[in-house]
Amino acid sequence: MEHTSTPAVTPASVGIRYGLLTGLVTVIYSFVLKAADLEQKPVMGFLTFGILIGGIVLAHKFYKQHNGGFMSYGQGLGIATVAGAVIGVLSGIFQYIYVNFIDAQYVQRTLETARAKMEADSNISEEQIDQAMQWTEKMMPTGPISIVWSILATAVFAFLLALIISAITKNTRPEFE
């Protein structure tokens, strides 16, 4: 008689699962911010980091629940990095579609807001503002390459967060078990 058992979850499968869930929440939240014109509020941006941190912590908890209560530091880093890449894919695709098809004036409004903030700072000359605006316009990702940058940036940021989170959530399996 053959013995079959359900395989333990893998860091990659948990990263993908929680990346999809967290990415969906992030996309919905981003859409609400854009629709309500609240995206430029710093407090609202910090909540995005809270969503990412919450997703990583929940992914670690899920992994430990399905792995006998254990998760190594490296597994925690892997889960978060995979989740970050998946979140980056979803966020990048959403941003690309939003900027190019839903709200074509988004980039222009963002640039105007940035200029107004710089003009309000009396320590910056008009020449410096013009130069900063030229660079800002060049750096605004609007093409398909923006999706790649989103994936890389979110994966790296999730990895950096996981350096701390994994140190807290890890529970290494004893060596002589």
Rank of each mutant, 00 (worst) to 15 (best):
Y96I: 13
K170P: 05
Q75Y: 12
V14Q: 04
P11N: 03
S91R: 07
V86Q: 09
R173V: 13
H66R: 14
M44K: 02
A162S: 13
G74D: 08
I16M: 09
Y29S: 00
T26P: 01
A167F: 04
G19I: 07
A8W: 02
L90V: 13
T6R: 15
P174I: 07
V107Y: 00
L152F: 13
G84M: 09
L21R: 04
Q75R: 13
M44Y: 03
L47K: 04
L152Y: 10
A120V: 01
F62H: 15
A167Q: 09
L52H: 08
M140I: 08
A12I: 13
S5G: 14
I129P: 02
F94E: 10
T154V: 11
A120I: 03
A35G: 03
G55R: 08
A12D: 07
L152E: 09
S146E: 03
V27K: 06
Q95P: 05
A114R: 01
G19V: 11
G45N: 07
I151D: 11
V57Y: 08
L33G: 03
K61C: 09
Q95H: 02
T48M: 11
T136G: 05
M118G: 00
G88E: 08
L38M: 08
I56A: 12
E177W: 13
F157D: 02
G23K: 06
R17L: 07
T172P: 05
R17C: 01
R109W: 00
T10M: 06
K138L: 06
V107K: 12
S125Y: 00
A162H: 01
G55D: 05
T110C: 00
A132E: 01
L47A: 14
M139H: 01
I129W: 04
S91E: 09
L163F: 06
A167C: 04
I79Y: 08
E127S: 04
G69Y: 10
G88V: 10
Y73P: 08
Y18L: 05
Q131H: 06
L90M: 15
G84K: 08
T169D: 05
V148P: 10
F70V: 12
K117L: 05
L160N: 04
K61S: 12
T172V: 12
K41V: 10
L90A: 14
E112V: 02
A59D: 05
T81G: 12
I145R: 10
P42I: 07
S5C: 13
E137Y: 06
Y106R: 06
T26G: 11
V148I: 15
F157M: 12
A155R: 03
I151K: 09
S150L: 02
G68P: 14
L52E: 11
D37R: 03
S13Y: 02
T10V: 07
T110A: 04
L90H: 12
S13A: 08
N100R: 06
I151H: 10
G50S: 12
Q65L: 14
F159S: 07
E2Y: 14
G143L: 05
E39C: 00
F159L: 12
D103L: 02
E112F: 01
T142C: 01
T154A: 14
L52G: 14
G45H: 01
L24W: 00
A35P: 01
T10I: 08
I97C: 10
G19C: 11
V107H: 06
G54K: 11
